[in-house]
């Protein structure tokens, strides 16, 4: 019983990490129909940004948080303007290679700036782990959980209650039609990029105390976050949340009751299952054939 609870707590910690990364994927896909394979690298930028702003420059945590997320957003801005927009033939395969190229570039750049070693940051608040029925939960996990929920709620509000958000969704549904109604479609894509990448960087910031940060942390986190996004339904915000927690819990239960060697396989087996059985994901209604 105590063990089961501990597995679930571990699932929550990992699940929240996957969810917050999945959120960035889903958000961008929702607005632009694009999958950014460099998303994991923006997570890495956020984490390493926090290392610099918080532990090296000794700025207060909230300021460091905003600066790190802002840095991710700015990198996303540059990425969209310099790379994505200049593509003459925006076919998906071309965009995939460009984002893969960007991920290699960002990894290389981060290695030059922050070095090859991993960096640790302290928890946001120095509380002892919480003890519930013999199982323990890190306070940082609660921080992650809380911030993820705020992010989802914020995005939900943005899409459903603000004009800009609605315009962005209109672009996603039909860019040309949206443009005809006077929505600056290009600006919307740019904005979506900035929001998505700063979400990614914010994800890096909040998970940094748990995971430790190094220039090559992004790839696996990106892939797992991606599985979570697919699981919940690509493009669905609440789906990202559900997918993340489902993946996190199943992974820790899998380790607990089966074998730890196969832990990474769980994410990808789930990915295949959901693709074969219900490609639109748990929460999705989208047509799986759209490109």
């Amino acid at each position: 019983m105590e063990e089961l609870l501990q597995y679930l707590f571990s699932g929550i910690t990992n699940g929240a990490i996957y969810a917050v990364i999945a959120l960035g994927f889903s958000m961008l896909y929702n607005a632009t129909d694009l999958i950014n394979f460099a998303h994991g690298e923006f997570v890495m930028l956020g984490g390493l940004g926090l290392v610099t702003f918080w532990t090296v420059f000794n700025l207060p945590l909230p300021v460091a948080f905003i600066l790190a997320a802002g840095m991710g957003g700015f990198a996303g801005f540059l990425f969209e303007r310099l790379a994505i927009r200049t593509v003459s033939k925006p076919q998906p395969i071309v965009l995939v290679i460009i984002t893969v190229g960007a991920s290699i570039f960002l990894r290389g750049a981060a290695m030059l700036v922050w070095g090859k070693d991993a960096h640790g940051v302290p928890d946001f608040s120095s509380h002892e782990p919480i003890d519930i029925f013999g199982a323990t939960l890190l306070v940082q996990s609660l921080w992650i959980l809380g911030i993820v929920l705020i992010m989802v709620a914020g995005l939900h509000f943005f899409y459903n209650r603000t004009l800009t958000g609605k315009a962005m969704q209109a672009c996603a549904i039909n860019k040309r039609a949206a443009w005809l109604t006077g929505i600056p479609a290009n600006k919307m894509v740019l904005l979506a990029f900035i929001i998505s990448t700063s979400l990614g960087a914010a994800a890096g910031v909040i998970i940094a105390p748990v995971t430790m940060c190094s220039y090559d942390m992004g790839t696996m986190l990106g892939l797992k976050g991606f599985c979570a996004a697919m699981l919940g339904g690509l493009g669905s915000l609440w789906g990202a949340l559900i997918g993340g927690f489902l993946l996190g819990s199943l992974e820790s239960l899998g380790v607990g009751f089966f074998s730890s060697g196969l832990k990474d396989a769980i994410a990808f087996i789930l990915l295949l299952l959901i693709l074969y059985i219900r490609p639109q994901g748990i929460m999705g209604t989208a047509d799986s054939k759209r490109f």
Partner: peptide
């Protein structure tokens, strides 16, 4: 897998590639 298309096909093949890599390792 080939019933899927677009990004979904990409993801399906990605998942299968990862699973085989884990098999080689484990």
């Amino acid at each position: 897998t080939l019933k899927l298309s677009g990004y979904y096909l990409g993801m399906g093949t990605l998942g299968f590639g990862m699973i085989f890599n884990i098999i080689f390792r484990e």
